Amino acid sequence: MNQTASQKAEEFGFKPGDIVQEWLWDDDVDDSVRAQIEKLTGEELVDEDYDSAVDGVIVWWRDGDDEDELSDTIVDAYSVLGQDGPMWILTPKPGRPGAPGSSTVQSAAQTAGMNAATPLTVSPDWNGIRLRAFGKGR
């Protein structure tokens, strides 16, 4: 891959028309990632209060947030995710403020019954980790 996922949003696995739910937004998120997802899907991101099924999920996660809370957030987000759509945990890259320890997302994902993939660079300051339910997909 020659471009970051923010420049090539289809790397997230989202498609035109998808409704993507965003969890734990704050003013430190990378708006270019958000804009590229919205451009690809043609839909605005919906927040965690959205109460219908969604086609994909992104969760912005930072160190200092409670790991058990991340597990709970993963379970809550997965419960509204239709047809096993893409779920991503976005974290600050190592060395950036808020970067979690290397095992934090993996541990929270396992607690929630999910597998965590290898991190993917999604912007200069953020990595993305795709989650899948145990026994699902590649």
Rank of each mutant, 00 (worst) to 15 (best):
L90R: 15
N127C: 08
D125I: 11
V57D: 06
E67F: 07
E44V: 11
D30I: 07
T41A: 07
E48V: 03
Q21N: 03
T118Y: 13
D66E: 13
R34S: 00
Q110D: 15
R34N: 09
S107W: 07
L90D: 02
V20R: 04
D18Y: 00
F12L: 02
G101M: 14
E67S: 09
A133E: 15
D27G: 10
N2Y: 14
D125C: 12
T91L: 07
L70C: 00
P16D: 09
T111F: 01
K136D: 11
E11T: 02
K8M: 13
E44Q: 11
A133K: 10
A133W: 12
E44C: 05
I74C: 02
T4P: 10
P124M: 15
D63K: 10
K8N: 08
P97W: 15
Y78V: 02
V59N: 05
G17K: 04
R138T: 08
D65H: 06
G98K: 14
G101K: 15
P94C: 13
E22S: 06
D26S: 05
D55N: 13
F134Y: 09
G113V: 05
M87V: 04
A53F: 04
E38K: 10
V57Q: 03
A35G: 06
D68P: 03
Q36S: 06
A112I: 11
M1N: 01
G113H: 06
R132H: 06
P97D: 08
D49Q: 08
N115T: 02
P94T: 03
S79H: 12
P124F: 12
D55P: 08
S107A: 14
D68I: 12
T4V: 14
E11V: 12
